[in-house]
Amino acid sequence: MTDPVLHLSDIAYRWPGRAGFALSLPELSVAKGETVLLLGESGSGKSTLLSLICGTVTPDSGAVTVAGTQMTALSASKRDRFRAEHIGVIFQQFNLLPFGTVTDNIVLPLKFAPKRRKRVQSPLREAAQLCAALGLPDSIHTAKANTLSVGQQQRVAVARALIGHPPVIIADEPTSALDAGAQTSFLDLLFAQTAAHDTSLVMVSHDPRLGARFDRVIEMQDIVNVNRTAP
């Protein structure tokens, strides 16, 4: 088996300033091109886990390795740069800068990731191609993000996560704001794109019906221990 794209081991984390919330995770490994669904109710530590993977928080102990680099050993600003280079992020909703155009939003991560920028020959053409692949009309490129429907916004967010082909895409309940029909077509497009570029996808959700489409489904409670003690 090839080296995992994403590997977390012996993670222990305690929220600063918030007594009584601690999280530990013995191990989580995601292979290249693998799609993983993390299932859990709210409060199961999903958001914390995503923040740990993205490096906006660092564990008190343990190691997070992404694409062969141990993020936990990097300085805060190097982690920011590393995230920009290697991880595409899709939120639940409100993914976009409302005042920016669609194209502005899609090419934004390249601004912070020079290597990822180099992988893209022409950011504007790449953005247009991604829009086309995700079924967004050409006329949308110069539209302000806040004029788009929620479904369109989520697709723009996918295009932004995919541009420059980062090895890992992290998605935080990206379909929860969409109706059932839109959910299906959104996931179709997302999976088509991750499969085409052999991109690993880690998605968190509380909806077990999505599980069938993923390579692997992990229940949060099976890998993560969350301790809440009275403050």
Binding site: C54, T56, A76, S77, D80, R81, F82, R83, A84, E85, V89, F91, F94, N95, L96, L97, P98, L108, P109, K111, F112, A113, R160
Partner: peptide
């Protein structure tokens, strides 16, 4: 706040 979170997720440093 959300706008700042988006910038951060894209890899912007707090200094940005």
């Amino acid at each position: 706040r959300r706008e700042m979170a988006i910038f951060r997720a894209m890899g912007a440093r707090p200094g940005f």
